[in-house]
């Protein structure tokens, strides 16, 4: 099983290697724009709890990118499934659903980790240096595991590229803006905080920001990310059979 999981993962990594320069440029452009626009130009004088807005924003962008880049594996799976029909190769091979899902989820996590290094590099350029200890990386790992699992599950049940695009628009984009990336969720009315507290990204951005700023991290957020990630991995496992006609 491990050998086959590695085969699925290695295929994604070989493709990533071929596209590496394009991939890095693509992953850098949006965080760079957010840092320039929201962090540098608009939020230059803004401070939250004695930290500059750039220091507040950077961990939020880390959380957001670990989500979007891990979730982006769904697009790659869909292109392989609907356009190149490479998914047929996996379906006809003697591999378990768990091997396939694990390989793709690992690929999603790798993409997310690459994007984090890019953001941290951009942060250095803007003069932002935070604490990047084990809890910071654990929260990123859990967040990218969760969203890569969600990506595989959804990629198995959608029927076209258009469906995939709609899911990104209705699930990922709102979460990216409302999950504590750009502003502190505790400044919102209580009822809205309760709703946003249901979003995994809210917990991820809170945990990542807490760790990056050297504050206490709410262990419950990490537990919630872990449990949700495991549940979504199992959902993805069962959804692989749904991809058969």
């Amino acid at each position: 099983m491990i050998n086959q999981t590695i085969a699925v993962y290695r295929r994604e990594m070989l493709i990533l290697k071929r596209r590496f320069k394009r991939q890095v440029a693509g992953q850098a452009i949006l965080p760079l724009l957010y840092l320039v626009t929201f962090g540098y130009a608009m939020g230059g004088e803004l401070r939250f709890d004695d930290i500059s807005y750039l220091e507040f924003l950077l961990p939020g962008l880390v959380a957001m990118s670990s989500m979007t880049q891990a979730f982006a594996i769904a697009t790659d799976i869909n292109v392989a499934r609907f356009y190149w029909h490479i998914f047929d190769e996996f379906q006809a091979a003697p591999i378990s659903n768990a091997s396939y899902v694990a390989g793709e989820v690992m690929a999603g996590i790798t993409r997310a980790i690459i994007s984090i290094f890019i953001i941290l590099g951009l942060g250095l350029l803007f003069g932002v240096q935070l604490h990047y200890g084990p809890i910071f990386w654990l929260a990123i790992l859990l967040n990218s595991f969760l969203f890569a699992s969600l990506a595989v599950a959804l990629a198995m049940v959608v029927k076209s590229h258009a469906d995939q695009s709609l899911l990104t628009s209705f699930v990922i984009t709102p979460m990216a803006f409302l999950g504590g990336t750009f502003f502190p969720v505790d400044r919102l009315p209580g009822w809205l905080q309760n709703i946003l507290g249901l979003l995994p990204l809210t917990h991820a951005s809170t945990a990542i920001r807490g760790a990056a700023l050297g504050k206490d991290v709410n262990v419950m957020s990490l537990i919630l990310l872990t449990i949700t990630g495991i549940i979504l991995f199992w959902v993805a496992f069962f959804c692989v059979n749904k991809a058969r006609d």
Binding site: N3, Q4, R11, L14, R18, D88, E89, A92
Partner: peptide, 28 residues
């Protein structure tokens, strides 16, 4: 079994060797 579909379902961005190698690894 092995299967050849009527469409070419190879990874276009990988080499001939890499496509075959990944397949072999999938089969253990």
């Amino acid at each position: 079994f092995g299967v050849v579909h009527q469409y070419v379902n190879l990874d276009q961005e990988l080499t001939v060797f890499e496509n075959l190698d990944i397949h072999g690894q999938l089969f253990g």
